[in-house]
Design a binder for these strands. Structure first.
Length: 274
DNA sequence: ATTCTGTCCTGTAGGC
DNA sequence: TGCCTACAGGACAGAA
């Protein structure tokens, strides 16, 4: 489900809502989302924790606690963090897998239809597998065109799956990879090392631009994504190619093509993207 | 070391 | 209506 802009939206919203609050209780309805901890241990360790910071790292939401420990939430495809009422008690929502009771008597629900997501509790972020080799954040100033140029020269993979490689750049997923390449006018199957100086320049600029615009519009709700209020993102009407197979390219009217790369759908215009 | 395939799970949309 | 297949904003282990 969510990529960088959606996770950024969740983290920013939650920060406003839960900083300074203490977790007073935890209800667990499915232990499969607990990463490496039993129901009892997870409950015991989370109860009494006070939230001091909420932020995004890659596609993960990180909660810092006052005692120097952390809760990492990887929502993967269908995870939602919904702030408000207790969704099991009030709506009997079966997707609700974990509910945190907060000290202001509001609840933080973790919903996950497909159960791919993880709630990871740790005292050391560096031990979390996802963070160990995580790549550069494309909306951070450390993402430089010179760095991108050098890195692309070392790689042979097609550019689209490379954009989705979290050890290369952290945060781009299947929707934004297609959107970024369309706006950069780069063919998704092009080998990374063959991109021209001009193409790399466009790619660098467009990547940052698309992600920042999507953050400003609170993300894309293609199907499942919802923010912490349960609301959809607004980037949907800016989407150019993703999910538009067979429909006309907005620039040249050629039908948008769909191919599969490393098991994931890629959408592009074979006339505009070369 | 990089790149790719299969897998985890549940739900929905589309074809017949 | 029902049955069947394909597909879904991710990331890991293990293989090539």
């Amino acid at each position: 489900m969510p990529e960088l802009p959606e996770v950024e939206t969740i983290a920013r919203d939650l920060e406003q809502k839960i900083i300074g609050l203490t977790i007073t209780g935890v209800d667990i309805y499915d232990t499969r989302v607990l990463f490496g901890l039993s129901k009892e241990k997870f409950t015991r360790r989370l109860r009494g924790q006070t939230v001091t910071r909420v932020y995004r790292r890659g596609k993960a939401v990180v909660l810092d606690f006052a005692d120097g420990t952390y809760l990492i939430v990887q929502v993967k495809m269908t995870g939602h963090l919904i702030y408000g009422r207790h969704l099991r008690q009030t709506k009997n929502l079966k997707d609700t897998k974990v509910v945190f009771h907060l000290s202001n008597n509001v609840y933080l629900n973790y919903n996950d239809q497909r159960l791919f997501g993880w709630l990871i509790y740790t005292d050391n972020l560096d031990t979390v597998g996802y963070f160990k080799n995580i790549g550069i954040d494309p909306v951070n100033d450390t993402f430089k065109v010179e760095w991108l140029t050098d890195e692309l020269k070392k790689r042979t993979a097609p550019i689209k799956p490379l954009l989705m490689n979290q050890n290369f750049l952290a945060g781009i997923g299947n929707i934004y990879a297609s959107e970024i390449l369309y706006r950069s006018k780069i063919h998704p199957q092009k080998s990374s090392k063959t991109l021209s100086i001009d193409e790399v320049r466009r790619l660098h600029k467009v990547t940052t631009k698309v992600l920042k615009e999507a953050i400003a519009l609170r993300g894309t709700s293609m199907r499942n994504y919802r923010d912490s209020d349960g609301k959809k993102g607004n980037y949907m009407n800016r989407i150019k190619v993703y999910g538009r197979e067979g429909r006309e390219c907005f620039i040249c009217r050629t039908p948008v093509k769909r191919i599969v790369q490393t098991g994931r759908s890629t959408f592009f215009c074979e006339k505009c993207q070369t």
